[in-house]
Computed example of a mutant assay.
Amino acid sequence: MVKVSNRFWFQLHGWFSLPVWLLFCFVCVSGTIAVVSHELTWLTNPLARADNPHNLPTKSVAELVAIVEQAYPTADVGSVIALESYLANSVIFTDSDKPYAIAYVNQYTGEIQQINQDMTFINFMRSLHSWLLFPWPGNYSIGYYLVNSMAFVMLGALVTGLIIYKNFWRAFLQPKIRTNQGKKTLLSDLHRLAGVWSIWFLMLMTATGLWYLVQAVMWHNDIDIEPHAPIADISQVPFNITEKPQPLVSLDGALLMATQRFADFKPSYIMLPEHQRDTYKLVGSGDYVFYDQYAYNLVINPWTGEIEQEISPANMNTLQTIMHIADPLHYGTVGGIWTKLIWLVFGLILSGMSITGFLMWGSRTVRAAKTSDVTDKQLSAGIN
C-alpha cells in the first residue's frame, strides 16, 4: 500500500482552504451577520420594533390587514409576515403610488410604524449570504451554486485538517496557545485550536450546505420538493356582473380553521388570494423544535371552506423534512436567541480561521519564494 506523506495532506489542506479564502471568508462573515439580522434590525430600527409596554394581546392577522386597508383604501394587500415577537409584523401591499411596500404594523397596538419600499436588512443579508445577490435567470442562480459549493471546501479542509493534526482531541483537554514563540507559532496554535473546537460546527455547515446544493440542482431541473398549491375550480366561483363576489370564508375564518386543525399553529407567512380562483395559503410553525417557521402549510379554498392541501411534520416525506430542518440548523434558530449567539460565536471563529489560514499560507509562500531565490543565486554563482 502506498503511504501518503504528511506533507501531501498539508498541501491538500492548504488548497482546500486558501485559494478561495476570500469568497469563503465573505460567505462566513455574511452568514454570521444573517444569523442575528433580526436582532440587528431591532437594535438599529426603532420603527421595526413591536413594543408592548401595556401587555396588550396580539391582534389577528386579519385585523392587521384591515388596519392597512383602512389607512390605504386603494391598497391591495398580498401577504403578511410575522417574524419574532419583538419585531412588528410586515404587511406587504401594492398601491397606485407604491409598486411594492411593506407596512410595519405593531401587532399589539395596531399602529402602522413605518412604510418601507426598499429591501429590508434581513432580506438583504439572507440574499447576500445565500446567492451573493447574483440574478436568478429562471430557476437557478450562479451565486447560489458558488456559495453552496463552499460545502466541499469545508469538508475537504475538515478531513485533511484532522489527518494533519495528530491526536487533535487533546486540544479539548489541554488547549495550547504559545504567545512567546513568534507570530507563526501563535497563528498556527490559534488555527488548530479553533478548528478542533469547531468540528461539530463545520460538520453541520457542511451537511446543510450540501443539502442546499442538492436543493439548487432540484430547483434547476424543475423537481418539486413540495407540490404547488391547487386553485379553486371555476365552477365554485359565483358569477356576478355588477359587483365583485365575496368569498364564503374570510381570512379570520381561514385562520380559525388552521388553529382548529393544528392547535399549536402560529402564523408566520400568510398569502391572500390574488385572483378569484386563488386560495388562502397559511404557513406557520408549531411545537416541533427542529423545524422552521414554515413547517405547517395549509391551502384553504375561500369559496368552499375546504382544506385543499395540507403539509405538516406529521405527513412530510424525507426530502420535505430535510428542507424544513436545514434552516434552523444552519442559522441556529432551534433554541431562540441563545442558540443564535452560539452560532454567532462559531461563525466568527470560522471566519477567523479562514483569515489565519491565509496568513499562514502567505507566510510560508513568501518564505519558500525567498529560499528558492537564494538557492537559484547560489547555483548561478557556482556555475559561474
Rank of each mutant, 00 (worst) to 15 (best):
S351C: 11
L12T: 13
M257G: 00
S372C: 00
W21C: 11
V217L: 15
P230I: 14
C28Y: 08
G332E: 07
P46W: 07
R364P: 00
D292R: 09
M154P: 00
L40I: 14
D278S: 14
A326I: 03
V334N: 10
L193Y: 01
V196L: 03
P267N: 05
T279R: 12
L47W: 02
L272R: 08
Q113V: 11
G31I: 09
H54T: 12
H129R: 05
K244I: 13
Y212H: 04
G138L: 12
T179Y: 04
L190V: 14
N384Y: 09
L344G: 02
T259M: 09
V4R: 12
S79T: 03
G305L: 12
E63K: 14
Y288G: 01
D118E: 12
M360E: 01
M353T: 10
G182V: 02
F16P: 01
S188K: 08
E84T: 14
G332L: 13
S188P: 00
T279C: 13
T242F: 14
S60I: 03
N297V: 02
P57H: 08
A75K: 11
Q378K: 14
K281I: 15
T206P: 00
M360P: 00
V105M: 07
L155S: 02
I177R: 00
W42R: 07
R126N: 10
L251M: 09
K166Y: 05
T279Q: 11
A75N: 09
S198W: 02
I115C: 08
P53W: 05
Y104K: 10
Q276P: 00
F10E: 00
I102H: 03
A258T: 06
T74E: 14
F152K: 04
Y294T: 08
D97E: 12
H191N: 02
M125Q: 03
L64A: 11
L12S: 11
L193E: 02
Q117F: 03
L193I: 11
N123M: 07
Y140L: 11
L213R: 06
D292E: 05
K281N: 10
W9Q: 06
I355R: 00
K281Q: 15
Y288C: 03
G362M: 11
W200H: 05
N89Y: 11
S312D: 03
I112H: 07
A101P: 05
L202Q: 04
N221V: 10
E308M: 15
V147C: 12
L155F: 15
F152L: 15
V334P: 01
D278K: 04
S198C: 08
R277Q: 13
S79F: 02
Q117P: 01
M316E: 10
D224T: 06
S250K: 05
G161S: 09
